[in-house]
Each structure stands twice: as C-alpha cells, then as structure tokens.
C-alpha cells in the first residue's frame, strides 16, 4: 500500500492550566491516493480535532502528518476543508467566495480569465453556477454546502477534508448531496477524508471506515474495508448483503463495544 497521506503516531493533549486531557492517543493511519476514507465515532471522541490536525489548524502534541512523504503542520490549500457549517463569508457572493481561494492558489499559474473560468467550472461541478451572484444568506443550507465543496475543490487539494459536511442538513438534502459527492469522487478521483457520525453515510460513501473509540484518549478501534463496487446506488444497496454486513459491523462497534457514555 502506497501511503499518500500518513498519520504518524499522533497524540493530542489539551492543557488548560494545570489540568491536561489526552484527547487522541497514538493515531496511525495511511491513506492511498484516490481513496475515500471516513472517520466515525461518537461526539466528543476527538474526530474533529483529528481533522483539524490534518488540516494544520491545530498542532499535534506528538507525531505528525505526512502528505506525499513531506511533513505538513500548517494549514494550506493542498488540504482544503469543507466545514460543517459551510463557513462561507456572508459579505461575498457565491462566486467571490470560491474566487477568494482560487485567486490565492493560482495567483501565478493562471491568468485572470483562466481563474474566472476555473471558478465557474467548479460552480458548475456542484450545479451552483446559476447562483453565482447570490449571497450566502440568499441560498438554502444545501446550496451553501455545495458552494463550500466548490470552494474546496477549486483549490485543487491533494486531500479533500470533509468535516461532517452533511450534519446540518435535512435528510433529503443530505442524500442528494451525498450522491453529488459520490459522483464528484468518481469523476475527479480525489483523495477524501470525511468525518461523520452517520453510519449509513459512512458505509455508502467510503472505501474504508475508521472507527474511533470514545475519548478521552481516543484511539482507532477498528478499520473496516467496504468492498462495494462503484458507482454505488443508494436504492440497490439497501438490500445488498455486503452493505448490510458492513453497516452491522459499524453499528456493533459503536453501540455495543464502545457505547457512548454520557459524561455525568
């Protein structure tokens, strides 16, 4: 297995005054180019912290992240993030939000006209070209998240990081957007790392599912291969034996072996 993205013995300890909490313990993971990997776990298990470490927004206490065998420890467009709450800048239009990243990443390599075309190309990929001059407040939650995806894709990231990208959406919009992301992954072959707490979403989208134990000191409990052929069809999979078996495995992990214990 060729390591494209490698998480190497990552520990994360938060210190607040004298008290310190170990959030992540000894996280090791290698991801191949073009792979779609999901990280699933109960809330508070540190999966968002892990994503922030990979994105470079938070530093690891020990260990590090290697992308194409080079250590990365600060944020950059090669690891573009789709944030949970879209994080579009409300004072910019849809077009300007995507353009902001494009202008930075391709400042030297693309001309103005090329950058403009590239922005529109990416808005077209997520079917949002029609709303190019709208402000985020004028479009729906699903549309905002599409623009968020376009903004990340437009930076041509080596790894696309999705932080519970569909968490804030209603079930129908979520399904629709999941299909879009699957289609984009199929078409562009991106390497994608997604944080989720939705079992169906993880099984439907991923090549591998990384299951995390409960924090503090969360570890990788189990990694499950999802041997389903692509393209995957949501309706056909509902009765597919492999799909159901994978789903069962994840459910067992989350609800039997590592049941979420509410902090008293």
């Amino acid at each position: 297995m060729t390591a494209y993205l490698k998480l190497d013995h990552i520990d994360k300890i938060f210190t607040r005054g004298a008290a310190s909490t170990e959030v992540l313990k000894d996280i090791n993971l290698t991801i191949e180019k073009g792979e779609y990997v999901s990280i699933i776990g109960h809330s508070g298990c540190g999966k968002s912290t892990l994503l922030n470490i990979i994105a470079g927004l938070t530093g690891a206490s020990t260990g590090g992240v290697l992308l194409e065998n080079r250590e990365v420890n600060s944020p950059g467009p090669d690891r573009a993030v789709v944030f949970q709450n879209h994080s579009l800048l409300p004072w910019l239009t849809v077009y300007e939000n995507v353009r902001l990243g494009v202008d930075k990443v391709f400042a030297k390599t693309k001309s103005r006209a090329e950058r403009d075309a590239w922005v529109m190309h990416n808005l077209n990929l997520v079917q949002m070209a029609h709303a190019r001059d709208k402000r985020p407040s004028e479009i729906s939650g699903g549309m905002k998240q599409r623009v968020g995806i376009a903004r990340a894709l437009a930076m041509e990231p080596k790894v696309l990081l999705l932080d519970e990208p569909f968490g804030a959406l209603d079930a129908l919009t979520r399904a629709h957007l999941q299909d879009s992301v699957m289609a984009l992954h199929q078409k562009l072959g991106n390497t994608i790392l997604m944080i989720t707490h939705d079992v169906d979403e993880a099984v439907l989208l991923s090549d591998r599912i990384v299951m995390m134990t409960n924090g503090p000191s969360a570890r990788i409990g189990e990694v499950l291969e999802v041997p389903l052929a692509r393209p995957r069809k949501r309706l056909e999979l509902a009765t597919n034996a492999t799909y159901l078996k994978c789903r069962q495995r994840v459910l067992e992990f989350l609800y039997e072996r590592h049941r979420f214990v509410e902090a008293a």
Partner: peptide, 22 residues
Amino acid sequence: PQDYRNVAAVVQLNPLEFFAKI
C-alpha cells in the same frame, strides 16, 4: 468567528489580505 479564521488559514491569506478581506 473561528470559522472565518480557519477559512483564511486554509486559503493562506497573508495578514494584509486577512485584514482587508476578513
């Protein structure tokens, strides 16, 4: 919001751009 700061960090805005654009 931290979100906007994160966006700026991922896009790698320099301090001047961060000041003007965010």
